[in-house]
Design a protein around this nucleic acid. Sequence first.
DNA 1: TCTGCAACCCGTAGCCACTACGGGATCAAG
DNA 2: CTTGATCCCGTAGTGGCTACGGGTTGCAGA
Lengths: 137, 137
Amino acid sequence: MMVAARGLTIGRLAAQSGVNLETVRYYERIGLMPAPDRTAGGHRVYDQAHRRRLTFVRRGRELGFGIEAIRTLLALAEPGHRSCDDVLAVAGAHLREVRAKLADLARLEVILAQTVSACESHASAPACPVLEMLEAA
Amino acid sequence: MMVAARGLTIGRLAAQSGVNLETVRYYERIGLMPAPDRTAGGHRVYDQAHRRRLTFVRRGRELGFGIEAIRTLLALAEPGHRSCDDVLAVAGAHLREVRAKLADLARLEVILAQTVSACESHASAPACPVLEMLEAA
DNA sequence: TCTGCAACCCGTAGCCACTACGGGATCAAG
DNA sequence: CTTGATCCCGTAGTGGCTACGGGTTGCAGA
């Protein structure tokens, strides 16, 4: 009978796709994952298509895409659509955001690093450089 | 009579310290800013000490410190404490977090940039590289 | 002095993407 | 058949604000 593989519990699905169990239910609530079949007792039963979709979602999240972007990407991944241009628009926009955040964070890092190191070698006599920066008139 | 400067309305305080008006009230609610005096009619009245404190908070936020860290820094900035070591501990921990996020984001940027550029020059024939990455078995 | 309207008041809800909690039901192994 | 792991659901909390709405106050100009 070839055995199992089909008929995943939510726990197994979560483990196999690397997503928190509660998050799976959350994704169902917000319509990112389809409502699965249930056992007689009401437990969710998933199949491999669910697993693939959820893995897609996890990868998208790991790449920093927001939920709405992932919703779009999922639609664009449907056979029939598959427009590389549209995918590119979403991914390109995200890349620009990532780069903007990266630049912000890099500026931050420089300032913090300078101040902290001034603090560590606090030859800089009277006051704490970190506090001075925060208090600067 | 030397005139104004003292007796800031919440709106002026917000404008002068570069913080949103609603955020000022929020900071009061969470105890980050002290409750100011009120006019007979109930409007908040701030002074220069409030302005300095709020500016401190804004600078801290701009440097990416969390509210609790700023609470700590404010305490450490009180005359009498002013321990550079304690300040350094907070700022150093934050710097480490910033560097960790920076590293994460940099990794992300590389992956996204590669995939997007593979997508743009899509000599890579059959499928969209972005979707392939998300779907990879 | 009166009027008009900007600025203020307060409480509550919404944002993002989860995570946690609690009390009860179900499932599967022994 | 019992036990204990797993699952159910709804709700609330996280951080750090921002927005809304309906009402009150403050102040400048006429």
